[in-house]
Design a binder for these strands. Structure first.
Lengths: 263, 263
DNA sequence: ATTTTTAGTACCATATTTGGTATATAATTT
DNA sequence: AAATTATATACCAAATATGGTACTAAAAAT
């Protein structure tokens, strides 16, 4: 796997990305030797790549003792995305509405490389650490409302492939780990139009999510609502479900309109 | 400049970054040929690098017609930063306080590679496009409250170097373009402790900003407040100035405390 | 102050990436 | 449906980035 015999490779680029990911995952500033030891890149080559990344602002060693950390360039590049993934800007408006009405945490997610990614988030009243950070990814489609929506809308083949990739691991004791039950759940999701998750990803947290479609009718993301079990009772499920459906529906409608105008 | 004779270079990495910056700056999805024409990288080499960047999620071509755009990986890496640039999390608390008290736009900025960078932002009541996006950089230290604070706290040498780099261009008709006047302004900033800018970067917008210091006494950033001229009268200058000074002061104090505990 | 560890530079032969050309495949236009 | 354009792959000789080794400089640790 690491040794790719194919010459369409750009090894220096892969190494650079390995370095960036290593530093990012270590969640703190790291020293040169830590990188050498962890990454199996020769010293000399490593230095060259580190210098290049620092020169361009992708890494930064102006902090403590010249240790390396992720550069602020990523802040810029990360925040430049909203403009390009167009539906983010449109969805934002309706997410805000939802947030004001419910005071719950509202999230916009999408599927990227077979993983769920959190694109945007408006934090709710409840000050607790149920929030993931924007940009974080979750591979467990079977354990999240958003994931269930995605599964319910993909064709049989893709669904099997995506699930086959990681299986149905139990994230909490409530996670669905049985194929039959998941199939039922997916059918239920198709019927309702929105996805629901009851502490299956994190104990004490419930979520609902509804799909956003672009002008071509392609499913591009989900608007979701999260809350603790204390403030999101099971009797409120349909109320919140309808609310996310409404917000997602409005977003899809606006996306259709926009593309008509631009014809 | 582009041809570096030195062998500590990692050209493939520089090329990869050129590509990423080109795509990011074009503010839309770009085709292969656009990149070839703009960047002077041979086709074959370009493809190799593009493939590497796509494989790793730094670029994405799943959008329209297989055009290239910035990948969602940057979202993740960008949002991972707050944890590492420690003062962001501490400042956030006091920024929120300020935001609730004033309903104005509150911003946290820093200096990175001689440019001001917007690290964090809480949008105010006024729904208008005075907001820059998080991660955006401004080289005009002389035209922004935050920049004036930075200038007022750096030693003579660095100040001259930073200003020498871009001079004193007029961004609006109110921008200070005269060295003498800037020096006066810097002295005034030193006296007051906070920086002020009156439509010098954007017409109709006023800003104040105060410095945050880390436990070692190093100036690491500024907490600022922005508003339109309609909601930020000149008679309110000192009131808002004192408020940002207060928020920044509390942040610095907490940074000192944290480092004491960890001894 | 001295030693030890760590980070980075210089040098250079070799192996590897690189980038021509030709070719294949997909998308778009006529 | 055929022609044209755009994008990507295959191949291979040449050039160049790579990564040994040896050396320097700067921090930590003693």
């Amino acid at each position: 796997m690491p040794l790719n015999n194919n010459q369409n490779n750009a090894p220096a680029v892969h190494r650079a990305i390995d370095i960036i990911e290593f530093i990012s995952s270590s969640q703190r500033e790291v020293s040169f030797s830590e990188i050498v030891e962890s990454l199996d890149i020769p010293r000399q080559s490593l230095i060259r790549i580190l210098n290049a990344l620092c020169d361009r602002g992708f890494l930064d060693k102006s902090g403590q003792r010249g240790l390396y950390r992720i550069g602020l360039k990523f802040l810029y590049l990360g925040h430049g995305l909203p403009d390009k993934y167009e539906f983010r800007t449109v969805a934002w408006k309706y997410m805000k509405e939802l947030s004001q009405k419910t005071l719950k945490t509202i999230e916009l997610s999408s599927l990227d490389r077979d993983q769920l990614i959190l694109l945007e988030q408006i934090r709710g009243q409840e000050e607790m650490s149920l929030y993931s950070r924007v940009g974080s990814v979750i591979p467990y489609l079977h354990a999240v409302s958003v994931g269930k929506v995605y599964l319910s809308l993909m064709d049989e083949d893709k669904r099997r492939r995506v699930i086959g990739k990681i299986g149905l691991p139990a994230v909490t004791k409530y996670t669905i780990t049985d194929t039959k039950r998941l199939e039922d759940e997916i059918r239920e999701t198709q019927k309702r139009g929105y996805g629901f998750e009851d502490q299956e990803l994190r104990e004490g947290v419930r979520r609902v999510a509804a799909p956003v479609f672009n002008a071509d009718g392609k499913h591009v993301g989900c608007i979701g609502l999260s809350a603790t079990v204390f403030s999101f009772g099971l009797d409120e499920l349909d109320r919140y479900g309808q609310m996310v459906l409404d917000a997602a529906g409005k977003t899809s409608a606006e996306l259709r309109q926009i593309s008509q105008h631009s014809l």
